[in-house]
């Protein structure tokens, strides 16, 4: 049917190519192994590897920039305004007025693009040059306070996909309120009159709040 393909192989060619293959085999036999045996030898990933996302909620100012930057909508944030003076500043000096009561990341939806992350992910510490990458990474990173970043943990397999939803908020709403009460008992806490009434130590203020609640 096809004359080219019915041409017999010449013996010289067969021998030559076989020897060529044997030569390569001999070279390979003397080479060190490249196969990594996984559970015994775990690779140490470079610092900026796009793997697990980690959020420090004490540095978060609830600007929602990461949630807006995410192409796959995997970040959910809820926050409430905390009473003045109850929240500490972030580590790089941003003022915090909102307490994060919910910061959930669905790692099953995450596409590991790094668009939400802070400046540390843009220029990991061990890769920064003498000019300091922070100067311009600062303006282009989504997170202004460097609170959401990758860290090189890659063994996130789970039997239940629900376990891929990671919760980073330290307190829920109720627990956060308890914290504020403990930190500053005499400040106005809630805009909701019924809830606020319980928070006031001053009986007169409580009565006023009670009154407002029934208006």
């Amino acid at each position: 049917m096809n004359p080219d393909r019915e041409r017999p192989l010449s013996l010289t060619n067969i021998l030559a190519t076989t020897l060529e293959g044997m030569k390569a085999t001999a070279q390979e036999a003397l080479r060190p192994e490249v196969t990594e045996f996984y559970p015994e030898n775990r690779p140490r990933l470079p610092q900026g590897t796009k793997a697990q996302l980690y959020v420090d909620p004490n540095d978060c100012i609830s600007c929602y920039k990461c949630a807006k930057a995410c192409p796959s909508d995997c970040i959910r944030i809820d926050s409430v305004r905390a009473p003045a003076g109850t929240l500490a500043d972030t580590t790089d000096g941003h003022k915090r007025t909102f307490e994060v009561v919910r910061f959930d990341i669905d790692m099953g939806q995450c596409c590991y693009c790094g668009l939400c992350t802070g400046r540390s992910s843009y220029a990991p510490e061990e890769q920064r040059d003498d000019r300091g990458a922070l100067g311009y990474a600062d303006k282009d990173a989504a997170c202004p306070t460097d609170c959401i970043n990758f860290y090189p943990r890659f063994e996130n397999g789970t039997e239940d996909p629900g376990n891929l939803m990671y919760h980073f908020a330290v307190y829920g709403f109720d627990a956060a309120r308890e914290q504020w009460v403990a930190a500053a008992p005499n400040t106005k806490r809630s805009t909701h009159p019924e809830k606020a009434a319980a928070d006031y130590d001053d009986p007169a203020a409580a009565a006023k709040a009670e009154e407002l609640a029934h208006v």
Binding site: N2, D4, R5, R7, L9, N13, I14, A16, T17, E20, G21, K23, A24, Q27, E28
Partner: peptide, 19 residues
Amino acid sequence: TEINPVLTTNRVFIDRTAA
């Protein structure tokens, strides 16, 4: 040293794919 000697110049490979 590896791919060209073993595959690209292999007579069997050439005859298998040339037409």
